[in-house]
Amino acid sequence: MAEIIIPRGAFELHLRDLPPVSGANTLKVDERLESAMATVMSRGDNAALAARIHDAFGIVLPSGPQRVSNGVEAFIGVGPGVWLAVFEKAGPQRASKLAASLAGLASVADQTSAYAVLRITGEAAREVLSRGAFIDFDPSVFGPGSAAVTTISHIGVSIWRIDDAPTFEVALFRSYADSFWHWLTTTCTALGVGLVRHGGSARI
């Protein structure tokens, strides 16, 4: 069978229908399909794990709910001794390579397909997210590099802030994508915020 199988984004159909141009009071949104993700769970020696990760990626593993990135790879704290590793433009085998490199120090579970990740950029992003999540997104509290695992509209989400634009990424289990999209669009409509497709995907 010489054929190529195509991965499907959880938000693919919704995003297809968005206009590509941004205007006043719009939010740019796209789905992160080129990244690989994995849950990294320490086997107890957090210091050794942090050292190994620092050696491999130049990343200081955060001990709390933060995201630390080297521009290509990022580790996001989601629980004590548990991180979500995100690799930009990585292939489907990335998680097993990570597992091999952290052998003995961490257990690794591939979650590349488990999460649908929306990147949301724009002035209104903070207000839109705070409609759904009971999290203080004030810049003094939730600046770039902050992360939180919580819920929006009865859906479990992980949210991290990337930059000052502000850009946020929201990761949720992919089966919830349609319901999440409904929440996002109705909330944006209520706020008078338009959704537009992100042009390309920035490397951060």
Binding site: S42, R43, Q111, S113, Y115, F173
Partner: peptide, 13 residues
């Protein structure tokens, strides 16, 4: 016990 666990329900179809 040295055990780690995580849900991968959504990872696999």
């Amino acid at each position: 016990l040295n055990v780690q666990a995580v849900s991968v329900t959504e990872q696999w179809a």
